[in-house]
Every structure is written in C-alpha cells, then in structure tokens.
C-alpha cells in the first residue's frame, strides 16, 4: 500500500505524459500540459516549504537543547528565520517613517531592506570569492601531470588571454614580425589569441560538449525510464 500507490502513480502518470507529448488535441495540450503540469504542480510544490521550516527548526532545536559546541550560532539561525518570516507574514503594513513599511514584501518594506542590505551583500561576496578560489585552484591544481591536464591548462590560458585586451595588443605588436624562411606564412597568426579562442570554442569545445550532451541525454532517458517502470525505487526512500 505505502509503496504500491506511489509506484502505480509514477507509472500511470509517466505513461500518460509520455504519450501526451505526441498528441496534439486540446485535451493533451490544454488540460494535461497547461492545466495540470503548469498550474497544479505549482500549487503542490508550494507546500514543500513546510518541510524546510520544520527541518531547520528541529536541527537547531536539537543542537541548542544539547548545548552542542557553538550552539549560540543556532540561535542566530533561528532568529534570522523567524524575524524575516514574521516581517513578511505576520506584521501589518504600517508606515514607520523614513519611507519604510513594517510588514509585507514590497520594495519599501523592512523585509526588503534586510534582504538588500544583509542577504544580498553576503551572497554577492560569497559569489565574488570565486575569483580567489579560481586563482588558488589555478596555482595549486593545474599541473602538467599528463597530456590531459596539460591540454586543459594550455587551453584555459589561451582563452584567458584571448578574452582581455591584452590578446589583441600582442597580436598587433606581433603583426609586424616576418620570417625570412617562410615569407608567405602569416606568423602573427600564431598570436591571434582572439581568433584562436574563437576556434577553440567553435571546434574542440563544441565537439566535447556535444559528446557530453549525447551521453547525458542517454543517461537521463535511462534514469527516467527506470523510475517509470519501477526498476529504480530508491526515490521512495525506504522499503516500508
């Protein structure tokens, strides 16, 4: 019962929607695809927030109760959530001066002020830390251990030069260079980083991405079918 119902549902809906893609009558297009897929699932998904709130609450509660090391920070987590949520949901939309509104999620609400001045700067800073991490990864991990790694780092270096003005400056400086041995050969072409970058993007890069796409598509289809046919049941999360 506890397993049969979900498995039957997955199979039935999986088969119906597999066919729905090929049928073009209004039942398929308007009802199955538009109404149920787009509108209903949106509503069903809304309630998943229940689990995130309870889980966060439970985790922090346990740590605080046990007085686990650093449990003070769990208070901060809870306070952050409760304060933010109550500004949005519980508090009334009252004017509190300085052009701000107490409740609600509008642009001039406290909720939005906290978002813009606390959450956004922190997230943007997290994001910007990638610049440091890229540098350190490049320094530490890009070693010419074998041909594969060498190819990766050389390509990365060429593309990096090709993307900044430096690339074209080098090309311009070099375009005067001529060889006595092979006068016809356009030597400066070797330094045309912008052009080489474009070629790398167009040819080997496209080839590699395309092959990955084929593989991923096959894997995706197989995984989907395994679930529809009940070969793969681990998403049920348990045998009970």
């Amino acid at each position: 019962m506890k397993r049969t119902i979900p498995l039957v549902l997955v199979f039935t809906l999986g088969v119906i929607y597999f066919f729905a893609g090929f049928f073009s009558n209004s039942f398929s297009v308007n009802f199955l695809q538009q109404e149920i897929y787009a509108n209903w699932l949106k509503i069903v998904g809304t309630f998943a927030i229940i689990m995130s709130v309870t889980s966060l609450w439970r985790r922090n509660y346990i740590k605080i109760k046990r007085k686990a090391p650093g449990y003070v920070y769990n208070y901060i987590e809870l306070i952050g959530m409760v304060v933010m949520a109550s500004f949005a949901v519980l508090l009334p939309k009252v004017n509190i001066g300085a052009g701000m509104v107490l409740g609600g999620i509008e642009k001039n609400s406290v909720f939005n002020w906290i978002f813009m001045n606390i959450q956004v700067p922190m997230q943007a800073t997290m994001f910007s830390m990638l610049a440091f991490y890229i540098a350190s990864a490049a320094y530490r991990a890009f070693r010419a251990r074998n041909i594969e790694a060498t190819l990766l780092l050389i390509t990365a270096a060429i593309v990096m030069i090709g993307r900044v003005p430096l690339g074209e400056n080098i090309y311009q400086a070099m375009s005067g260079v001529n060889s006595h041995f092979l006068p016809e050969f356009h030597w400066a072409g070797i330094f045309d980083f912008q052009g080489i970058t474009q070629w790398i993007l167009d040819i080997p890069n496209t080839a590699s991405k395309r092959a990955i796409v084929f593989g991923v598509a096959m894997g995706g289809i197989a995984t989907s079918l395994k679930i529809v046919f009940g070969i793969e049941k681990s998403w049920l999360g348990g045998t009970e």
Partner: peptide, 29 residues
C-alpha cells in the same frame, strides 16, 4: 564568519517563507 554564515542561512530561509507566502500561497492558492 560564523555569525554571518548562520545569519545568512536563517535569513535566506525566512526570505523563502516570505516569498512563498505572498507569491505562491496567496497568488496560486
């Protein structure tokens, strides 16, 4: 960092609650 990190986690969940309440629950349901 610890303070900022935990506050960020808490606030981001709270922000999610606010958005879902107003946009999804009120809007869709």
């Amino acid at each position: 960092y610890k303070f900022a990190e935990h506050l960020l986690v808490g606030i981001s969940v709270g922000y999610g609650i606010g958005l879902i309440w107003h946009n999804a629950f009120i809007g869709y349901v």
